[in-house]
Design a protein around this nucleic acid. Structure first.
Lengths: 103, 103
DNA sequence: ATGATTGTTCGACGATCGTCACACAGTTGA
DNA sequence: TCAACTGTGTGACGATCGTCGAACAATCAT
C-alpha cells in the first residue's frame, strides 16, 4: 500500500530539505500538499506544463529529501507531505514555507 | 558606510531565499549571523577552509538573495543578517532555519 | 610614493541540475 | 492473453553551481 522508501526523519538534514524546496516546481508542489492530504501524481493535478519524467524526477527528490511519502495503490501513486514528522524535526519550517499569499 | 546594493525586501522571492540557504557554506554563515550582529568578512571569522574568491561568491549570493547587508568601513567589510525585515516578510523562516542544535 | 592589506571580479574547470524523449515494468480491464 | 494506462528509470542535452587562481581596485601605514 505505501511504497518507495523515504528516509528516517532523524536522518534528514536541513540543508537537503532546503535544497529540495529551492526550486519553483517543487515549492509549488509542496504548497499544494500543505493540508497534509495525499494527492495523485497524475500530471493534471499540479497545473504544471511538464513531462511525466520531469515530474517523476521532482517527486523523487521530494521523497528522498524526506519531505514526502509515496503511497502506491494499484497503478496510481499519490504523494503526501510528512507534515507531523517535519514539524517535529524542523519546527516552524513548513508553516513559514507554505506561508500565505506572498509570492 | 553601508555599501553594495541589497534588493528591497518587497522584491525578495521565497524561492530565491531558499536557494541561497540550500548550500552548506551559506547555511553555516547565516547561522553565525543569527544574532543579528555584523561580522567581518575576514576568512578566519567563519571556520571554513575556502579561498577569498569563493567566500566573496557566497557573500554575494547571500546579499543578492536579500538575506544580508554589506557594511563597508574603510577596507574591511562586514555582513549582517537582515533579520527584522526577513521576519516581517517570511515569518518564522529564519527562526526555523537557524534553529537549535540539530545538525 | 610605495608596499601591504582587504576584498571583488574574471575566466576556467568539473560537478550537479532541470528538462526531455524513449524504453521499461507493473496493474487493470476486456 | 493482450492492449491500455500509470508511473519509473536511463541517457542525453544545455544551464547553472561551487571552487579556484590570478588580476584588479581601494584603503591604510610608512
Amino acid at each position: 500500500m505505501t511504497g518507495y522508501p523515504s528516509p528516517d526523519m532523524s536522518d534528514v538534514e536541513l540543508v537537503d530539505v532546503l535544497r529540495a524546496l529551492a526550486d519553483p516546481v517543487r515549492l509549488h508542489v509542496v504548497r499544494l500538499l500543505a493540508n497534509g492530504e495525499p494527492r495523485a501524481k497524475a500530471l493534471d493535478e499540479w497545473g504544471l506544463d511538464l513531462t511525466k519524467s520531469t515530474m517523476a524526477h521532482h517527486f523523487r527528490i521530494l521523497r528522498e529529501s524526506g519531505l514526502t511519502n509515496t503511497i502506491v495503490d494499484g497503478r496510481t501513486h499519490a504523494v503526501q507531505l510528512r507534515r507531523a514528522e517535519l514539524d517535529e524535526r524542523f519546527p516552524g519550517l513548513m508553516a513559514s514555507v507554505i506561508g500565505d499569499g506572498r509570492s
